[in-house]
Amino acid sequence: MEYKVLKVLLRTTIHSRLFLLMTFSLFLFGCNHGLAPITVQPGFGGTVRFVSAWPPADSVLNLRVVAFRDYPPQNIITEVTSGSALVYPPIAASSLPTFVDSVTYSFTLDSASTFKYLAVVMQYGSNILQDWEVVGAYGYSHGAGTPKQVIVSQNNFLNGIDFDVDFKNLPPNPLGASVSDRR
């Protein structure tokens, strides 16, 4: 039987040997194990503190932290879906807890990134594209301040990126219409 197998191998043409060589070369790629964990996941996180009374429940539909790569932002949903902004919790997940005194958040990134504007945003109406308002922004306190950028380097996680949300003194709303305008 071995003799017959050997005869077959000898009979194969240059084409079949080339085919076997190509297959074997690709075969070896399988030895590099493919995907692997990332040692330190870059990102940032902190606490959102609510320092005044919450607005009526019918205007608090959804609460998120959004990190925009550019300033000023145009539209939360289009910037998030295009990759120009990140949102926490993710869009399909439930809102951040509401009517609480504080809440923690964190962003995990795939690579080093810079964010020029970080905001706590609230959905006050049923139109998910339009009905958003900035209720807190990184770099602002009691409605006053300037946007502060966050730079995250590779293999680094930044803590202490905190917000104070004062519903009585909201920061400027670069997203356009707000709940107060609507009222």
Partner: peptide, 22 residues
């Protein structure tokens, strides 16, 4: 679906490699 990755629904969703399976 970059929207799912950008929106944080699929973390590290851009991690992908060619398939070499035996």
């Amino acid at each position: 679906d970059r929207q799912l990755v950008n929106a944080g629904i699929v973390r590290n969703g851009n991690e992908r490699v060619p398939t070499y399976v035996t």
